[in-house]
């Protein structure tokens, strides 16, 4: 699962910074059928967590109501330099993860 995650590389301490996440995933609703008429099972990314230096700051629990190739934008407080880690899992049990580093000044 390819993902694009945008995090500002530098931030000032205490700033609210925007995190944008876009993951390539069909987010199958379970209501579609393939060319042979057999139904395609539901398969969506049901959970995505964002951990900042090991502490979970944001979590999304999603259903089939989220569009294909889910996009999320949210904010966290820049506290310390370190690592942002993103982990997600879909209904088929396929997991993905991504990490970025951030430098906090001041």
């Amino acid at each position: 699962m390819a993902a694009r995650i945008s995090v500002p590389q530098n931030a000032r301490r205490g700033d609210s910074i925007e995190i944008r996440v876009a993951i390539q995933h069909p987010m199958e609703t379970g209501y579609r059928t393939d060319d042979n008429g057999t139904s395609i099972p539901k398969n969506v990314i049901n959970k995505l967590a964002c951990r900042y230096n090991g502490v979970e700051v944001f979590r999304a629990e999603m259903g089939s109501g989220i569009s294909a190739n889910p996009y999320l934008s949210f904010f966290i407080i820049a506290a310390n330099s370190g690592e942002l880690r993103f982990d997600w899992v879909d209904d088929a049990g396929v997991t993905g993860s991504e990490r970025t580093s951030i430098i906090v000044a001041g």
């Binding site: 502490v55 944001f58 979590r59 629990e61 989220i66 999320l72 934008s73 949210f74 407080i77």
Partner: peptide, 15 residues
């Protein structure tokens, strides 16, 4: 969407 300690502005954008 769940916000932990350290979350920023309570705002979410999605499709």
């Amino acid at each position: 969407f769940f916000y932990g300690a350290g979350a920023g502005r309570p705002q979410i954008s999605t499709r």
